[in-house]
Design a binder for these strands. Structure first.
Lengths: 262, 262
DNA sequence: CTTGTTGTGTAGTCCAGATTACGGAAGAGG
DNA sequence: CCTCTTCCGTAATCTGGACTACACAACAAG
C-alpha cells in the first residue's frame, strides 16, 4: 500500500522510503491539455507592476515543467534555489520530522508562487513539495531573477506584503494548534479554505477539493479524528460532503464552532 | 493571587480580568537609569541604511515611553498603528484565545522592533504585548513613518528579510508543535533562546532569563509538564538552573534530544 | 529574622486525540 | 459487470500532557 510507485525521480529520497506520502496511485498517463508556454508570469499578482516587456524577458527564462501527481518538486537532496509559479494543478508543501510524520504547510492552487522566502535570503531547510495533481510549474532561478525583483521597489513591497500575510496566517495557525481543540481547528480551517477557493478555482460552486487525510495533514491530526469531526459537522448541516470534496453550507455556524473551546 | 494589581491602565482590559497574566507583582518604583531620548533608532538594524539626518528626523517623532512591568503596550481596545522599538527591558508578545488561554509569540530583547507587519498592511488582530520587565519603548506612528520606509527600497528589502526570517521561525515552531513531544520542543526552544541571548544581552555568560512558566507559555504547554522536562534535562546535565535563569551547558545533547521522538 | 510573594518539585486524576484494526462504499479501469 | 484502489466510518485501547492540589525553597521588603 505504500510502495507501489517505482517510476520515481531516482535518488530524491534515499532508501525508497516515503512514509509521509502513504497513498499514491499507479503511474497514469498525463492528460495535460495543450498549454501556452509563455503565460507563466501574467496572472500572477507578484509581477503586476512589471511591463509587458519585462514579463516577456522573464518568461523566456522560465522553463515550464510538467510534474506528475505524487512527484516531488524538490527535496533537501535537491535543494531549491528557484522561485516556483504554479500554473495548473495543485501542490502540497510540507515538512517531515525525524520519525517520518509530516505536517503540510500549505496546499497551493494555480496562480500561487512558492519560494518567496528564498528571495530574501532564507533557505527552506526541510521543506518538501509534492504535486497532488498533475501540475505544470514554471521555475525561475533565484539568481537570474534577483535583480529584476529586488531592484524594483514596487516588487520588493509586494514581496513584503506577501510575507506579511504569511506571517499572519502562520501566527493564527500556531495559536489555533496550541490552544484550540480539534473540532474548532477543523471549522476554522474549512472557513479559510473556502475563502481561497473561488479566487483561483471558478470551476463549480465553492467546493473544497480535499480528502479527510489531506485535511488531517494540514492540521497535524490523525485522519480518524478528523473524520469524526467532519461527521459531526455534516450532522449539524454546517457542511456537505462527498468523497474528496467538501462544501461549506453554513459559514456562521462554522465561525461559532471555530471559536468554541468545547 | 490573580487580582492584586489595581493600579493599572484603566480600561485596557474590560472587566479587570486578566487570566493570561496570572502572576504580577505589586507596584514597584521605577529604577530606570538616565537614558538618552535620542538614540532610539541607532543600533536598530532595520534603519542601518538611513543617513544620520534621516534618523535624526525620525527620532524627533519617536516618543520614548516608559512601561512598567506588567503593563500592556496595547490591546485590541487600543488598536496599534505604530512601530515599536524596544530600547531596554523585555516585552512578551502574545495571543489570547476565547477561553483565556494564551500563547506567547515572542519574547523581545532590547534592540528588537515590533509591528513590522503593520508596515505592509497587516493588522494584528488579537495580539497583545506586555512588558515583563520595566521597559523603555519608542513608538513610531506608521502613517508618519510609512513614506520613510516604503519609499526606500533598501529598507523595503530589510523588512522583507525580517519577515522572511519570521516566517522561517514560525514554520519551524508550527511543525515542532504539531509533530514533536514536549521534551523535544523544550530542548529545541532552549537552543534557539540561547543563541539569541549573546546578541543583545552581553551581561553574563549566556544565561536565559526565563521562568518555567514563561517558557511554558512560549510552548503552549503547562507549567508543570515543562518543569518536569526541565528537571530531566538538569538530571542529564544538559542545562543548569536557578530560579528564573537557565544555562545551557551541553548543546550537542540538547540537539540530540530536540530530534528524538521519545 | 519574619512574612509575604513568586518560582519550582511532585503526585494523582482525567481526557482529547493517537493508534490499531476493521468493514464498507464510491469510483476507476478493465 | 467485476476487481482493485482509494476514501470514509467506527469502535477499542492507550498515552502524553492538562488540570488539580500541595509542599517547599528562594528571594524581597520590612
Amino acid at each position: 500500500m505504500r510502495e507501489e510507485c517505482k517510476n520515481e525521480l531516482a535518488g530524491v529520497v534515499p532508501g525508497d522510503l516515503r512514509p509521509w506520502t502513504p497513498n499514491l496511485r499507479e503511474a497514469e498517463p498525463l492528460v495535460s491539455g495543450p498549454f501556452d508556454p509563455f503565460s507563466c508570469l501574467t496572472e500572477v499578482e507578484l509581477f503586476a507592476d512589471l511591463s509587458a516587456q519585462e514579463i516577456a524577458a522573464m518568461d523566456l527564462m522560465a522553463p515550464a515543467r510538467l510534474f506528475r501527481r505524487g512527484e516531488l518538486l524538490f527535496s533537501q537532496s535537491q535543494p531549491v534555489t528557484a522561485l516556483f509559479i504554479l500554473k495548473s494543478g495543485r501542490v502540497r508543501v510540507f515538512r517531515v520530522a525525524e520519525d517520518g510524520k509530516a505536517l503540510t504547510m500549505a496546499i497551493l492552487e494555480p496562480g500561487a508562487v512558492f519560494g518567496e522566502m528564498m528571495l530574501v535570503g532564507q533557505r527552506m531547510y526541510d521543506n518538501y513539495a509534492e504535486a497532488i495533481e498533475d501540475a505544470t510549474i514554471c521555475q525561475l532561478s533565484v539568481d537570474e531573477v534577483e535583480r529584476f525583483l529586488l531592484s524594483d521597489p514596487r516588487i520588493a513591497i509586494r514581496i513584503s506584503r506577501l510575507l506579511g500575510e504569511q506571517v499572519a496566517r502562520l501566527e493564527e495557525r500556531l495559536t489555533d494548534l496550541a490552544l484550540k481543540p480539534l473540532s474548532a481547528q477543523v471549522a476554522s480551517t474549512l472557513l479559510k479554505l473556502s475563502e481561497n477557493v473561488p479566487t483561483h478555482r471558478f470551476s463549480q460552486d465553492r467546493t473544497i477539493h480535499l480528502t479527510h487525510e489531506q485535511l488531517a495533514g494540514l492540521l497535524g491530526a490523525s485522519r480518524e479524528a478528523t473524520s469524526k469531526v467532519m461527521g459531526e459537522l455534516t450532522g449539524k448541516n454546517a457542511i456537505r460532503q462527498g468523497r474528496g470534496r467538501i462544501i461549506v453550507t453554513d459559514r456562521d455556524l462554522l465561525h461559532r464552532l471555530a471559536r468554541s473551546s468545547s
